[in-house]
């Protein structure tokens, strides 16, 4: 054995000040926000009996016979989600092409398109729905428009990032054939991003089903409207049934959609 193998190895640990500082900031933010929002754990615990009373009213037992009257608005909700995500995808595709800076190499095009996309994405679907209800009146049309704008923002953002991440060699090759911009799009870009694009559309659909269930609360059609009406009339057992049926509907749709998406990419 050589001599230095017996020597004790002393490594100086790097100071992890930055790490601890970050944790401190995060903890401060969480507690600070709770304090600011008036969240009080004691109040939660002391009102626990109220919660149980409500749960009892909702689910023990739910209004089983009400199921048949939930089906129609539930289908309307799913239809809203389908139409909304389909229209969103339709508009998102050309817009994401304009936003991708490796296809349109012009900042004066990319930047404004991206700014508009960001604005669309910051508006919550519920606010959009309330706005459209005010303009177009109560009903699923307002809901569809809200979901359309919401899916458009979501899909186009994800798609333009996919376009920017493609293998550029294929673009080079198609360009060298003497192809114009449309042909480059058709042969070098669409085949590369199509599976992702379809996956994003399905993902938007999943999110939309969940969002659509709430939109009715502001009068934008679907199951949310039924929910709101029964809650106002204090038919808690019916509300419980709506929650159960919607839960399973969302679950089933999620499972199906996720399975298709897995196969796409």
């Amino acid at each position: 054995m050589s001599k230095d193998s017996n020597e004790k190895i002393v490594l100086k640990k790097p100071l992890r000040f930055k790490f601890y500082f970050t944790i401190g900031v995060v903890v401060f933010l969480i507690f600070g926000s709770a304090l600011f929002a008036g969240f009080n754990i004691i109040e939660v615990l002391s009102n626990l009996d109220q919660t149980f009373r409500l749960l009892d009213k909702l689910f023990l037992p739910p209004a089983w016979d009400y199921t048949s009257r939930i089906i129609a608005p539930l289908f309307e909700t799913v239809q809203m989600a389908i139409v909304g995500s389909f229209l969103g995808a339709l508009v998102a595709f050309p817009v994401s092409v304009l936003a991708a800076d490796n296809f349109i190499e012009n900042k004066f095009v990319n930047t404004p398109v991206r700014i508009v996309l960001n604005i669309f994405r910051t508006i919550p679907a519920l606010v959009l729905a309330a706005l459209f209800v005010a303009v177009f009146g109560i009903g699923s049309f307002a809901g569809i428009l809200a979901l359309f704008i919401f899916s458009f923002g979501l899909i186009s953002k994800l798609t333009y990032e996919s376009i920017e991440a493609i293998d550029y060699g294929q673009v080079e090759a198609i360009k060298s054939l003497g192809a114009n911009k449309f042909e480059i799009l058709r042969y070098a870009i669409v085949p590369q991003i199509l599976p992702q694009f379809m996956s994003y559309t399905l993902y938007a659909f999943e999110v939309n089903v969940r969002a659509a269930a709430v939109l009715g609360y502001v009068g934008a059609g679907g199951i949310g409207q039924t929910y709101e009406r029964n809650l106002a009339m204090r038919y808690f057992d019916r509300v419980g049934m709506i929650i159960i049926v919607s839960f399973f509907a969302v679950l089933i749709i999620d499972v199906i959609s996720r399975n298709i998406r897995k196969r796409l990419v």
Binding site: D167, G169, Q170, E172, A173, I174, K175, S176, L177, G178, A179, E183, Y187, A188, P191, Q192, L194
Partner: peptide, 29 residues
């Protein structure tokens, strides 16, 4: 450009299309 062919180290054929579609893409211009 259409009169100048080019091949690459990474082949750069369109992997998600059929062979015939790839070759026909040589006729775009």
């Amino acid at each position: 450009r259409s009169h100048i062919g080019m091949i690459f180290q990474s082949f750069n054929i369109i992997k998600r299309m059929s062979v015939i579609q790839n070759v026909l893409s040589g006729r775009v211009a």
